[in-house]
Computed example of a mutant assay.
Amino acid sequence: MAQPEALSTRDARLDPFPWYREMHEESPIRYDEDRECWDVFRYDDVHDVLHDPETFSSERPLTAQGEGETDGMALETMLNTDPPRHDELRKVVDDPFKPGAVKHLAPHIRDITNEYIDAVVDDGELDVVADLATPLPVTVIAELIGVPADDREQFKQWSDTIVEGPEAATVSAETVKEAQLQAQAEMATYFTELIERRREDPRDDLISDVIHAEVEGTTLSEGETLGFLALLLIAGNITTTNLITNAIRCFATLHDGIESVRDIASLELAVEEVLRYQSPIQAVSRVATTDTRLGEHSVEAGDRVVVWNGAANHDGDKFDDPGTFVPDRSPNQHLAFGSGVHFCLGAHLARLEARVALSTLFDRFETMQLAETELQPVESTFLYGVQRLPVQFST
């Protein structure tokens, strides 16, 4: 998904919210000739598109080697299918990600967090991204899936490459695309081999569950199985990485810093406000299945429609004072995890990981403050976060 011209600079990607306000007022729905797509910014419009999969489809061709027609294996996932097939596929892994199912992971998540803190506690400084927010969710989701510990760093590299945006990269868009295709192919090959091992030796992990699952009386195809595992691994770490990192950034702006959100009740509300204020995923794409209308605009079948969750979460018609981070905001019906049938499968796990990681940091550190650094946005067209976030602390 190409980046709008308005977000082509470093400063704009770090702070897209003034542009969102401008679009709310001047062009809440607009067609971008350069990107050949519709952009939707207001909360109600974004909500309506997400709740109408019949008109605004998620279906698009994906393969183990990338988008489009290739020699790769077709991957079918919940992200690129519509009901009823979407609902059938989601049933395969829905139960392990429900609130009650992930709740028991909290002590283990705290143990993992403490291990990463122990590794840097004597330094007096840590990079929130590299030292905690990146490895923690990779470890958790990899353990759930059944990926051996020695392979987790490789998976993080693959997932980072796959979501990288060409506009922010230091090399050409063609080079980025080639790297993405290579990463997807390597991941597919790895999973194919791991699937074969689990067929012969099932274990108590999601790989074994997916392999032996039946959807509407039929087993999943190999492409569907590969798609599931790739989706769980990538989506299972990127959102949480940016959520934890963005939370530290947001808390640093508060008058009392982390003191304002130390207790768990305050932290739960504060994490929801982070999701609204600095949504880890800023936009998602759909395709019109028929001629239709968006507001006063005529949309033709086949047109691409980009809905800006991040802009919807800053809509003044929905949220009072949307440009201010309010840690105890309630109610807070943000769209950070989407809405409708494609509501993020891992939302409850991401929330839990963030709350446990942040509360563990607060328990271990008496004070925390951002270190002096020039922030750089993540290299992606639809994610919101920073590449590094060094903080100084005292115990």
Rank of each mutant, 00 (worst) to 15 (best):
F41N: 06
E214M: 03
T360K: 06
H314M: 11
R198Q: 04
S266G: 14
L389K: 04
E259C: 07
V121M: 08
D32A: 00
M73H: 12
P4H: 09
A265Y: 04
R355K: 13
E273M: 11
F17N: 08
E216Y: 03
T395M: 13
R30N: 08
S394R: 13
Q157L: 12
E259D: 15
L294Y: 08
G338S: 11
Y384N: 14
R13A: 10
G316I: 05
Q282S: 13
Q369S: 15
T139I: 11
C344H: 04
R304T: 14
R286H: 10
R152P: 00
L79P: 10
D131V: 02
G223W: 00
L275H: 03
R10Q: 10
P107G: 06
T324R: 13
S260L: 02
D127Q: 09
T218P: 00
D263M: 10
D303E: 13
D122Q: 14
D320I: 03
V307L: 08
W19G: 02
A311R: 02
T367Q: 12
R388W: 02
T324V: 14
T253D: 05
T292H: 08
D263Y: 08
D127L: 01
R329D: 00
D131W: 09
L126V: 04
S260K: 07
L267V: 07
V210Q: 06
Y277K: 07
I141V: 13
D45Y: 05
V274H: 02
D315Y: 09
R30H: 11
K177L: 11
Y190N: 10
M187V: 15
K103H: 07
M1W: 10
L383I: 03
E272N: 06
E167Y: 06
H24Y: 04
F155A: 06
H314R: 13
V121E: 14
G295S: 12
V299P: 00
A283V: 06
E296R: 10
R329C: 00
T63R: 05
Y384D: 03
S260D: 05
R10A: 04
A188C: 01
Q333M: 09
I207N: 08
D87A: 15
D151W: 13
D205I: 03
P322K: 12
L231A: 08
A133V: 08
R42T: 10
Q182D: 15
L345C: 01
K91N: 12
P83I: 15
I264P: 06
V176L: 03
F191Y: 11
H342D: 04
G227A: 14
A149G: 13
S380H: 07
F41V: 06
P61E: 11
T289L: 06
T253H: 07
L105Q: 05
E54C: 05
T240L: 03
H24L: 02
Q182R: 15
T175Y: 03
V102M: 10
D11H: 06
H212N: 15
L194Y: 10
K177Y: 04
E153S: 15
V49Q: 15
D52N: 14
V102Q: 07
